[in-house]
């Protein structure tokens, strides 16, 4: 049963990591233009972050 003391924190950490990543993406306005982002990967222009 002692394995639980590793597994539970690990699962919580991984889930929390996903949540933080999601909140960060949301805050950086990465969901503002899903259709445009889908097309932008085809463009050769280097584009490291959405402009305001």
């Amino acid at each position: 049963m002692s394995i639980l003391s590793y597994l539970i924190p690990i699962s919580l950490f991984l889930g929390g990591f996903g949540l933080v990543a999601f909140l960060w993406a949301l805050k950086e306005r990465q969901y503002d233009d899903p259709k445009g982002d889908a097309e932008r990967i085809l463009s050769g222009k280097y584009d490291d972050r959405p402009k305001r």
């Binding site: 503002d32 233009d33 097309e39 222009k45 305001r52």
Partner: peptide, 28 residues
Amino acid sequence: HCAVCITDVEREMEAYPGVRSARVNLTL
């Protein structure tokens, strides 16, 4: 409607004197 439109419009706008940046939102 497409990737070419995005780059065309943004390149044209950013080349225009006085324009600092341009960003196309294809969804809207």
